[in-house]
Amino acid sequence: MSKVTTGATMSLDGYIAGPQESGFDLLFQWYGNGDVEIPTASPDVPPLRVSAASAEVVTKEWGNTGALVVGRHLYDMTNAWGGRHPMDVPVVVLTHRRPEDRPEDDENFVFVTEGIEAAVARAKELAGAKDVVVNGGQMARQCLEAGLLDEFGVALVPVVLGDGKKLFGELGTAPVQFDGPVEVVEGTGVTHLRYRVKK
């Protein structure tokens, strides 16, 4: 059955990015510390080279994903991943206004201006029987607050960033309880954890 999930690589002190969009070199070291290559569909993103345990987690998650929901900030920050997301699935971009250079939606990017519920609904249409993955931060927070989120995964890395951006942003509905972890996988330089949202 299709699920709405989110996930992020996170520091031990709970940040998915450091101050002023820093710390990614530390957070994503595990993307290049292994022997198993995972190709990406983006011309701007090189293949991942991860441990066998991490590769099993990543390939399973990517294989189960039918569409993504991201915010305009990430879309702009990555320069639209060079035209195609690394996971090779359509991306729904939640934005206040669509980019001027994208007057129409295509098989790579769909733009939604009506809020998180509309963005998730559109992503579900695109995903079919597969899962919808919502980007961490503001998108994940909005999804959790709206009762749309089913699961989330954390790739926990052994680094402390001290400050920055949290997985669920400034959550307005705390505290929130979860079931799990329902999955624990030890990779090289990362521990993969998965939790279910208590409905």
Score class of each variant (00 low, 15 high):
R122N: 00
H96D: 00
V45P: 00
V93S: 15
G66P: 06
A53K: 02
V92A: 15
C143S: 01
R97K: 06
D106W: 08
V160G: 11
G63Q: 10
I116G: 10
G172Q: 12
V92S: 13
V160K: 09
W81A: 02
C143L: 02
F111H: 05
S42M: 09
T113Y: 08
R122K: 04
E37L: 06
Q142I: 03
G128K: 03
L48T: 06
K165E: 08
V154A: 15
K60M: 00
E170T: 03
A140W: 03
E104V: 12
R141T: 04
E104C: 10
A119T: 01
L68Y: 04
G82N: 14
V93K: 14
Q177E: 12
L68I: 04
R122G: 00
P39V: 05
L48R: 06
Q177M: 10
N79P: 01
A174W: 05
L148G: 09
V132R: 13
P175M: 05
D131I: 13
G153R: 06
E104W: 10
D179K: 15
L74S: 03
V176Q: 15
Y75D: 00
L149W: 13
G82Q: 14
G115T: 08
P46T: 02
L167M: 04
V45D: 01
N79Q: 02
G172T: 08
V134Q: 04
G115E: 07
I116T: 10
L171H: 12
A174C: 02
T65C: 00
A155N: 13
G83Y: 11
L74I: 01
G153A: 07
R49D: 02
V160C: 12
P43R: 04
G164S: 03
A41V: 13
D101V: 05
T78N: 05
G164E: 04
G147M: 08
V112W: 13
F111M: 07
F109Q: 04
F152E: 13
V93F: 14
F111G: 07
T65H: 01
D179N: 15
V70A: 04
E151F: 11
G128A: 03
G71Y: 11
A55C: 08
E104K: 11
A121L: 04
H85C: 09
D163T: 05
